[in-house]
Write a protein that binds this DNA or RNA. Structure first.
Lengths: 127, 127
DNA sequence: TCAATAGTTCCGAAACTACGAACTATCGAC
DNA sequence: GTCGATAGTTCGTAGTTTCGGAACTATTGA
């Protein structure tokens, strides 16, 4: 079957990475993947589940993450194992991913204390 | 006149920053601003000039950068001085901006040696 | 007051995104 | 092998965002 495109690490761009992670759903998916050593299937994402993201949208998000070079998807039987490509990216763009993850963590922490949340344009309620 | 909106630093989001910098034109504009101590007017951007970006589009890009909290625009007479808010952001999200700038620099350096350029979706030729 | 300059706003066209429905691929049961 | 179930992908449509030319606004200098 069609073998699922992944860019070589030299073709990975900063723009692509930033674009992929500028979406809150994709960002939380990526954090899940990057934060575990075991590989996750496309449907096993608590963060995405909570938000009731439909299957087709989820599939698109995974495609964007793959195209950006952030994750690698491998078919294992009927389901797909997703693993991060952090190590490769770290070699090409040292410190980039860790600092983004750190920033996201800081933002999440400060979210509880009465924060009205900034205007992320399309982040909150869309459609 | 209308005093030009700027978010307070607590309302600045990682998503907003990443989205703003995921566009190559905006990114190069921001690099110009962040890389100099003197403030720049909206029209004095070699990077934008070269690419023939029309005035209205440029204005939109500056608005996105302002809304993301990356720059501050102040009217001085008939023109606008743009200065970066790197120091503020550095306090809120330590290391984020520097690592992005570093990554962009790495990417620019490696661009010459026969690189076909990755597929940044909308990066190159749009419309 | 008038012309010139620097940015913004308006708006139609093109590009992008979300998501339901239909489709494809793989596994297990029979 | 065929059937059904499951996991993802693709297609099509509707809504959103972005681009960029034309018109508009604000400020300075003549």
């Amino acid at each position: 079957m069609k073998p699922l495109f992944h860019p070589s690490i030299e073709d990975v761009t900063v723009e692509g990475i930033l674009h992929a992670l500028s979406d809150p759903v994709r960002a939380s998916i990526f954090l899940d993947i990057a934060g575990t050593t075991s590989s996750l299937t496309c449907s096993n994402f608590p963060s995405a589940r909570e938000q009731n993201v439909p299957k087709s949208t989820l599939s698109q998000h995974f495609k964007v993450l793959r195209d950006a070079g952030l994750i690698r998807g491998e078919r294992h039987g009927v389901e797909m194992k997703n693993v991060s490509r952090c190590a490769e990216i770290e070699k090409r763009f040292p410190g980039l991913i860790p600092s983004i993850i750190r920033a996201k963590t800081i933002q999440k922490q400060g979210k509880s204390h009465g924060g009205a949340g900034a205007k992320t344009k399309s982040a909150s309620t869309r459609r």
